[in-house]
């Protein structure tokens, strides 16, 4: 079990993290989700031992690792830009963590080679061991970085924006592949992302962060359906904020024949599997986004419709 207790970190006058507490169960796949500047990468790097907290502790299985250097924490870290060693072949990159061990604990050459080959097979790069990182595609490099991190048999896998540098199609394939790999290996993993879709799709639990604090920890379902703060509600999925302070998702708004509030329709377009209707509340001029099922006829531009919130939340400020 990983336990993060009261972690605080300042960079000069800027407070990156305020008293973070978090517990992660063995085998869990955790997403640290937040906008840039929310402190998510700093937290990941503190858990890895790449950054030092000003206050607080990190425990791995009950042991305080705060004083243990990164090389002895047994964490696999996948860097955002992969940080592959350009002058080494793919196989040498993967074997690096084994080759730098002291001679007493270092496996034999043949054993290291076998281990590297096996890992390359796991990440589906068999036969590419002799190539250099510069000769691979972005998705392949990503998987080399992963194989290299796995080679040291880490007890914890940390990934910093693992899909950030990839284009949309590769990103989707790799996401699915990574989820399957996690299912297979059952390795406790934490990844950092600013993409809510990625977090909701992959993670067992999502940690939503903002301004150096944790706003909510929960399953994707909980975070989406039961957002704990206004920030979570807006950052995970879309939300309208009504003048009376209620927060309503676009698909939780119904167009009704009578009653409700009047909305002047400005724009209607297709968004995925729904019609997106944009309009303004007649009373306050607040902009409202409404999703309408595609099996219904959407209102036309210029029309005034009446709406009612079927589900809404209010948050203490």
């Amino acid at each position: 079990m990983i336990r993060v207790q009261n972690i605080t970190k300042r960079f000069g006058d800027y407070a990156a993290l305020h008293g973070i507490d978090l517990e992660i169960q063995p085998g869990e796949f955790i997403a640290l989700l937040g906008p840039s500047g929310s402190g998510k990468t700093t937290l990941l790097r503190i858990i890895a031992g790449l950054e030092f907290q000003d206050e607080g502790h990190v425990y791995f299985d009950g042991e305080d690792v705060s004083d243990i250097p990164v090389g002895r924490r047994k964490v696999g870290f996948v860097f955002q830009q992969y940080a592959l060693f350009r002058h080494m072949t793919v196989a040498d990159n993967v074997a690096f963590g084994l080759n730098v061990r002291k001679s007493k604990t270092r496996p034999k050459k043949a054993e290291i080679k076998a281990r590297a080959d096996e890992l390359l097979r796991i990440v589906q790069l068999d036969g590419l061991g002799g190539r250099y990182p510069g000769q691979l595609s972005g998705g392949q490099r990503q998987r080399v970085a992963l194989a290299r991190a796995l080679a040291i048999e880490p007890s914890l896998l940390l990934l910093d924006e693992p899909f950030g540098a990839l284009d949309a199609k590769v990103r989707k394939d790799l996401r699915r592949w990574l989820r399957d790999l996690h299912k297979q290996m059952g390795l406790t993993s934490i990844f950092v992302t600013h993409d809510q879709e990625e977090a909701l799709e992959l993670a067992d639990r999502v940690v939503v962060m903002d301004h150096g604090r944790i706003d909510q920890v929960g399953t994707p379902e909980e975070v989406y359906m039961e957002p704990a703060t206004a920030f979570v509600s807006h950052f995970v999925g879309e939300t309208n904020r009504l003048p009376d302070g209620r927060h309503v998702r676009p698909h939780d708004i119904a167009i009704v024949a009578e009653g409700g509030d009047a909305v002047a329709v400005d724009n209607v377009f297709r968004k995925g599997s729904a019609w997106r209707v944009e309009g303004r509340l007649a009373d306050s001029n607040a902009i409202i986004e409404i999703d309408v099922d595609t099996n219904q006829v959407p209102p036309s531009v210029g029309q005034t419709v009446r709406i009612e919130a079927r589900r809404s939340r209010t948050f203490a400020d």
């Binding site: 960079f11 031992g49 790449l50 950054e51 030092f52 907290q53 000003d54 206050e55 607080g56 502790h57 705060s66 004083d67 250097p69 990164v70």
Partner: peptide, 14 residues
């Protein structure tokens, strides 16, 4: 914490 033992005049680094 390890940070406590590092010299304070520069940012700690691994």
């Amino acid at each position: 914490s390890i940070a406590m033992r590092k010299p304070r005049w520069r940012a700690p680094s691994v």
